[in-house]
């Protein structure tokens, strides 16, 4: 059994080890290891297309995760106060947003936005006073919106589960003490649900940062990191891609460790 488990871990980590190894390849090719060199890190960091793709991905992931965290938490709290039937409709829609395959979300958003833009752009052009009317088109906005749908549903689910576990008595006990609801919320509820909001934000960020298929349909002329990587794989990868992947891995590992450390610090007094 131990042997099997060891084998699975080797299986999981061999490709990652190869990615890291080839990021230090002295050769031009990502499939033949010649010797050690850190040159691809320099090349990756000075490749403007790659850096722009990375920046786009960070902007998109951060914005959609932040929107998802805020609006998703609001929805989770708001749904507590809805009637059973309305709440069921929301539950169903959020579940649909999670379950519908990414490829369908991408397609449906593309189709809908193309239609909506086709309707709005001529109207804008007609009513715009200046020479150059703004034209709506696919880009950052559409990726953020499409990612936001899935991640908002994700945050809502996570926060709702936490609120359900909270126990109404805490909230009610606090309002019995004649605290205004907003103060109750800030002092009692928010600290309790904060870990789940953060967890939701992180999941949302990871999802959006790694998503290829939705962005592939709705990115328009913008390139995200996964789209850039996909195109490079087709043309033949240089170790630049390995270098950037290794850096992303290193940064996220550092973040996990920091998060672990912070949570341990916080937990100490209570345990």
């Amino acid at each position: 059994m131990r042997a099997l488990v060891t084998f699975v871990y080797v299986f999981l980590y061999t490709p990652i080890a190869l990615v890291v190894l080839f990021s230090f390849n002295a050769g031009r090719n990502a499939s033949e290891f010649i010797g050690f060199s850190a040159q691809w890190y320099g090349k990756a960091l000075s490749n403007t297309f790659l850096m722009e793709a990375l920046r786009n991905s960070l902007i998109v992931a951060f914005t959609s995760a932040a929107l998802a965290a805020i609006f998703g938490t609001m929805a989770a709290i708001g749904m507590e106060r809805l009637g059973a039937r309305t709440r069921a409709v929301f539950d169903g829609l959020f579940a649909a947003a999670i379950v519908v395959p990414g490829v369908v979300i991408g397609i449906a958003t593309l189709v809908a936005l193309v239609e909506v833009f086709g309707f709005i752009n001529p109207v804008l052009a007609a009513i715009w006073p200046g020479d150059q009317p703004p034209r709506l088109s696919l880009g950052y906005g559409s990726i953020i919106a499409a990612h936001g749908l899935f991640t908002m549903a994700l945050v809502t689910m996570i926060v709702k589960a936490r609120i359900a576990g909270l126990g109404r008595d805490i909230v009610e006990a606090s309002s019995d003490l004649y605290a205004a609801p907003l103060t109750t919320f800030r002092q009692i509820v928010l600290p309790q649900i904060m870990p789940s909001i953060l967890a939701g934000f992180l999941l949302a960020f990871t999802f959006s940062f790694d998503d290829f298929i939705i962005a592939f349909f709705v990115a328009g002329s913008n390139t995200t990191l996964p789209i850039y990587v996909f195109a490079s794989i087709r043309r033949g990868v240089t170790p630049e891609i390995n270098a950037i992947a290794t850096m992303v891995l290193a940064v996220s590992l550092a973040l996990i460790l920091i998060a672990r450390f912070l949570m341990r610090e916080k937990k100490k007094p209570t345990t």
């Binding site: 805020i70 609006f71 998703g72 609001m74 929805a75 709290i77 708001g78 749904m79 106060r81 809805l82 929301f90 829609l93 959020f94 649909a96 947003a97 519908v100 369908v104 979300i105 397609i107 449906a108 958003t109 189709v111 809908a112 239609e115 919106a145 499409a146 936001g148 749908l149 908002m152 809502t156």
Partner: peptide
């Protein structure tokens, strides 16, 4: 007032669900 607050809380998510889930699905 309470009802208005509730509506305000679920409004952004509802907008999202409608514009980026229901509407696209109707479109396809």
């Amino acid at each position: 007032k309470k009802r208005l607050v509730t509506i305000a809380l679920v409004a952004p998510a509802s907008l999202w669900l409608f514009v980026f889930l229901v509407l696209p699905f109707i479109a396809i």
